[in-house]
């Protein structure tokens, strides 16, 4: 006891005013940023969905927000039965399917091939990533012209074999499928970059071991690579899920104008662009309601995916 009591407890050093000030000031910007651009914006947006703008009444300028209860949500809910709303939601859900079940598997396989140093691997890496660094306006125009009935390379190629090309963009749902195709083409590089990074971090010993054991590539891919890069796959998969609410530029650039290919984000964007702000509460309610409905599914999928493989540190 004596010995213990003899140990002098180190007195916590008081921070100087400059140290405290420095910490406060360093934290001030991110905290202020979070409060202003996340907290206030989201609070204000949610609040707006329960309000109505009253601009003029009885010839007098009122110019204020009043409580509207659930009116905006009721209008949005009624709108869900409309054919165009169903189509917009269907188009948007398609991006999730394309991202997660076509684009992501393609990216995983491509990344593995690149990792295995297949011939022209470096060249392919550049080719994959090239669409990601070209402005979307240029890329979308180039993509459209490839399928043009007179100038298009694709149509010209098909014509060589006597194949009559369809109207790629002229009729729905072909136009929607073409935008999905564009997303696969233009989005592959980004996923390949993420997954290549994850694969390249895997311990080389494991691959040497699998080589010594004579493990075939397919087995190596499914038994070693996939489980070890699973956290990255999960993240990419979740990003794919959120594309349901985020895809806007692709349909806007590829099919400008009303082309049946609207998405949730594009509808919200168009509504905000072309409508008076008095119409915004309903638009915000539309986005918010869909997000709230989707949230449990996204969280459940995240939870489920994290359970498939244990997280491994290496």
């Amino acid at each position: 006891m004596e010995g213990i009591s003899a140990v002098k407890r180190k007195k916590p050093r008081h921070k100087s005013i400059y140290e405290t000030g420095f910490i406060i000031l360093m934290l001030a910007y991110p905290v202020a940023h979070f409060i202003v651009f996340w907290g206030i914006v989201n609070f204000n947006s949610i609040l707006r969905t329960f309000q109505r703008y009253v601009m003029w009444q009885d010839g007098k300028l009122v110019n204020s927000w009043v409580w509207a209860g659930l009116d905006n949500y009721k209008n949005v809910w009624t709108g869900f039965s409309r054919a165009d709303t169903k189509r917009i939601i269907g188009n948007s859900l398609g991006y999730m399917v394309v991202s997660n079940f076509i684009s992501l598997p393609l990216a995983i396989i491509s990344s593995y091939f690149l990792f295995k140093k297949m011939p022209f691997a470096k060249w392919f890496r550049v080719i994959f990533f090239l669409p990601s660094i070209i402005p979307i306006v240029v890329l979308a125009t180039v993509f459209r012209f490839q399928f043009d009935a007179r100038f298009g390379l694709v149509n010209g190629f098909l014509n060589i074999f006597g194949i009559e090309s369809p109207s790629w963009f002229g009729v729905y749902p072909n136009s929607q499928r073409m935008i999905y195709l564009y997303c696969i083409w233009a989005g592959l590089g980004f996923n390949v970059l993420l997954l290549s990074g994850a694969i390249s971090r895997l311990p080389v010993d494991l691959f040497e071991y699998s080589h010594l054991e004579g493990m075939p590539y397919v087995k190596e891919f499914f038994r070693i690579v996939i489980p070890l890069i699973w956290p990255t796959i999960t993240t990419t998969f979740l990003l794919g899920l959120t594309s349901v609410f985020g895809v806007m530029l692709q349909p806007m650039m590829i099919m400008p104008g009303d082309a049946n290919t609207q998405t949730i984000a594009l509808k919200i964007y168009n509504s905000v662009r072309t409508a008076n702000e008095t119409a915004r509460p309903e638009i915000i309610a539309f986005g918010l309601l869909l997000s709230v409905m989707a949230m449990p599914f996204i969280l459940a999928i995240k939870f489920g995916m994290e359970k498939i493989y244990a997280d491994v540190e290496f």
Binding site: R87, G170, D258, A259, N260, Q262, A279
Partner: peptide, 25 residues
């Protein structure tokens, strides 16, 4: 119209009506 409830020509449904009619959809 000011409140974005209705449009005067085509319905604001994001549909390309001329293309639909041209393609007999």
């Amino acid at each position: 119209v000011l409140n974005n409830k209705i449009t005067l020509e085509w319905a604001d449904t994001g549909v390309n009506h001329y293309a639909e009619l041209y393609n007999k959809a």
